[in-house]
Computed example of a mutant assay.
Amino acid sequence: MPKAFVLTVLLAFASPLGAAQTTPAPATPVAPATALPAAEQATVNVIERALSSVLYIEASSPSQTQGTFSSPLFADPRSQDDQSSGSGFFVNAQGFALTNYHVVEGATRLSVTLRDSNQTFTARVVGTAPDYDLALIQVQGVPANLIRPLPMGNSTGLRVGQTTIALGAPFGLQFSATTGIVSAIERTIPTGIRGIAQNAIQTDAAINPGNSGGPLLDSSGRVIGVNTTILSPSGAATGVGQSAGVGFAIPINVAANLLPRLQAGQTIVGPILGVSLAPFDLTDLTEQARTQYRLPRAGALISQVTPNSPAAQAGVRGGTTRIQTPVGPVFLGGDVITAINGQAIESAADLREYLFNRQAGERVTLTINRAGQTVTAQVTLAPGTVPGTGR
């Protein structure tokens, strides 16, 4: 069949009434653009302004993968640095920005992208607060007109139901925004490298991996929190936790109180006793195990005592019998802390939370159950270390 005939047939099938119609059908009218409702326009304006203050942070750290070649003469494609990403936001005109500690932890290089620039900038870590999962970085070489600090709000007095806006880079999708409400304000979640329970803002604004360190705003565009973690099941396909409408942010008042010390270059961690605690609660043990090792029903079980630590100097004892548990090896037979300065301690979490609110150099009195006998010990708390396993 000639090509011209094929084309004619196709056109005929595409427009069977073409021969009978001599004028084209009128075009469907397009409705003119209408203005957004006032409340919606206000949200758009807040997000548009705030995104210019948000950082997309890429962190490079030494690869944990062993290279194929041991000789420096050969390049191994698997020996490249590990890459991770997160978010942050400017807090002052000098280019300082807040983010999460876990975004920058172990990084040897930080690269920052801004929404209003095609250039990639480097950044340096200024100060860290590992126990709070906060870090302050400074972006290098940014033009002054691109440094747009976000206004700080007040996380005290938040009300369940008020609007929240979460900004960041979920799954690397830079400069994304989600909205929701404050879902709860009386929440405590394990925070920082030692998982110490702390107050947090709960929101249903979608937060996903990559939102870490980004701002949580109120309806006026003021920062009320720093996005930090989510509570969700693992993703069925990827194994990566997905948003399930339960996200948490560090209250901005906590970050604001730490900001002067972070800007001064400090590493802020809570004080320590110098002990390693059993990674389970005494209530998890059977009655037979508690009887065998003369353990009370509640308290913080000391597995090991760090040599020359405050606890060691005060005569606190660790365990002597090593046993293997589902959560790793533990030494039993040591002291159990049942109170500190008269306040009852029922678990390891209670002890961590109490110490978190104390200062290095402070002297505390431990009430100890030692093989069924009650003894006391005076301990002077020491500065914490990073990363450390001491409590």
Rank of each mutant, 00 (worst) to 15 (best):
E346I: 11
N369C: 06
T306A: 11
T34C: 01
V386M: 00
D81V: 04
G67C: 08
A59H: 05
Q242D: 02
S276Q: 10
I323V: 15
V364R: 03
V91Y: 00
R352I: 00
Q21C: 01
T338A: 08
S276T: 03
D133W: 15
R109M: 15
T228W: 03
L110S: 08
A348K: 07
T320F: 12
T188D: 12
S15R: 11
A166Y: 07
Q140V: 09
I137R: 06
A236Y: 04
S117R: 07
R261C: 05
P72A: 07
L216P: 12
A31T: 03
G247S: 04
M1H: 11
T178I: 08
I323G: 03
Q373A: 12
Q119S: 06
P143T: 06
S63A: 12
S61D: 02
P279C: 10
R352N: 14
P251T: 08
R370S: 08
T365E: 15
L114M: 10
S232H: 10
T376P: 13
L173R: 15
L146C: 05
S79Q: 12
L17M: 14
P170M: 09
V54M: 03
Y101G: 10
Y354I: 12
Q198F: 08
N45I: 02
P310L: 05
A25I: 13
L355E: 12
V103M: 04
